[in-house]
Amino acid sequence: MDHFERQLARMMHDAEEPAPFGPRHRKRLREGVSARRRARAAKRAVGSVLTLAGLSVGLFLLSGDPTRAEPGEPRPLPATRPSPPSPVMTPGAASPSPTSTETSDPRATATRSPTSAPPSDTETTQNAP
C-alpha cells in the first residue's frame, strides 16, 4: 500500500459521520418488512392460482380429446401376408435336402411329372379318323 492508498483509506474512514438509528428509521424499516411480506404473500397466492388454472385447463383438454384410442378396439391387421417360417437350423445338423422336400409333397410330384396328363386327351386322339 503506497502513500496515496494510505491517504485514500484515511479519507474514507475520516468521512464517517455519526448517524444514530432513530425512531424514524425503525418505523420505516418495519413498514418495509410489512410491505415485503405482503408482496411475498401476494406472489405466492398468484402462483397458486396460476398453477390451479393450468392444471384445470390441462385436465379439461385431456378429457375432451376425441382421437383417444379405446382399449376395446380391434388391432389393425397387417397389410401384407406373413412369410412362411424358415426351416430351423440347428448347429451340427445337415442342411435339409431338397429331394426329400419335393417327394414329401404329393402335389409337387403330380404337377412336375410328364405322365400326369389327363387321360381324356389320349382317348380323343385314338378315336380320331
Binding site: E16, F21, H25
Partner: peptide, 18 residues
Amino acid sequence: FDEFVASRWSALMHLARL
C-alpha cells in the same frame, strides 16, 4: 435484529453512502 441494526447502523450508513 433491532440490536444488530442499532449497533451497526452508523457504519453501514457510511458504507452505503460511499
